[in-house]
Amino acid sequence: MELRHLRYFVVLAEELHFGRAAERLHMAQPPLSQRIRDLERELGVTLFDRTRQRVRLTEAGALLLEHARPILEGSEAAREAMRRIRPGAAGVLRAGVPPDTVPLTLRTLVTTFAERVPDVLLELHELTTEAQLAKLREGELDVGLVRHPCDTVGLISGPVVHRRLGVILPERHHAAEHEVVRLRVLSGSPLVIFPREMAPRLYDHMLATCRDNGFLPGAIRHARNPQFVHGLVLAGLGVHLNEPPAGALPPGLVWRPIDEPRLTWSTSVVWRPAHSDDALAAFAAAALAGLHAADHT
């Protein structure tokens, strides 16, 4: 019996839905179904009752769940202990940050962390929210800075900092004349947004909020790099929802606040329960300082 098969089982037992469980595990649904069938054959029991309408734990499944959770928690504690004594690992904090983190936030985070724990090396990784969550659960990161809403089941989350979004427009766009843009005024305009796989729950939340406010994009275009985003908007190929720019926008673009408070970058530090020390506390405090510094620009 492999630990990864137990983890697949526990996630499915928590979700009781193959699609949601596969999404949490960052895998396709058919391989997950096959791994569960393999586990059932190995144990000689049926772990789930499956119908078209629902998935339900059997008595054997409920019993295995009682044993599987402590096993997984113990393996994570052992992994953490080994990581801490591995040569070169001591004194290093592996942290994830979103690719679009503004320079002022990064500068404040790094300098504040160094002031608090000068003997710890901060190893920063530029990762999307989904990639951070996956690496945290696999023990490849110690702490992350993620955007909500996202799946933080099994992780600890610090205070959430909210930064309201506005819209970046070509200066010739009709909505650029408004001091505060109502989302419904943008209806029909294409929307430039990050790819869904970067943060699925946030992506869905943003599109649902736009729809609720009468903003139905004429098309959706995906972009990660801020320069590419600005180029698309400048070319008239869409509008883009984002926080106030940290510096000057390219000529021909403007940023305007919008009338929907639910559209925010909601960001917090997350970490695994087995990992809690002074370096992590220092990172959490430094990240909050960085987020608040950007909020006062």
Rank of each mutant, 00 (worst) to 15 (best):
T112R: 14
P118V: 09
G96R: 00
R116S: 00
V146S: 01
G144C: 08
A131I: 02
T112P: 02
G139E: 08
D151R: 13
K135V: 02
L104H: 07
A114I: 09
G154A: 14
L121T: 14
Q132D: 08
L109R: 05
V110N: 01
L104D: 04
A134I: 11
A90E: 15
D100Y: 09
P118A: 08
D142V: 09
L109N: 03
L109H: 05
V161Y: 00
V92Q: 12
S157K: 10
L93K: 00
A134D: 12
P149D: 05
V146M: 04
E126P: 03
L145K: 02
P159W: 00
E123K: 09
V143E: 01
G96L: 02
E123Y: 12
L106W: 08
F113S: 01
V102D: 02
G96K: 00
P149V: 07
L121A: 11
V143L: 03
G158Q: 03
L141I: 10
G144Y: 03
V97Q: 02
D119Q: 15
G154N: 12
G139P: 13
R116H: 08
T112I: 11
P118H: 10
G154F: 13
I156A: 07
R107D: 14
A95N: 00
V153N: 08
D119I: 08
E140M: 07
L155H: 09
A131S: 15
T105G: 08
T152E: 11
E115M: 13
R107C: 07
L124Y: 01
G91M: 12
P118Y: 05
D151V: 08
V143T: 05
Q132N: 07
A114V: 05
R94L: 08
T101F: 04
E126R: 13
L121I: 07
L133I: 12
Q132F: 00
P118K: 08
D119S: 15
E130G: 05
C150K: 02
H125Q: 10
P103C: 09
R137G: 00
V146K: 01
R116Y: 01
H125V: 06
R147L: 14
E140H: 13
V161W: 01
F113E: 05
P159G: 02
G154S: 12
H148V: 11
L133P: 01
V146I: 15
E126F: 08
P159A: 10
R147N: 13
L136C: 12
L133K: 11
H125R: 07
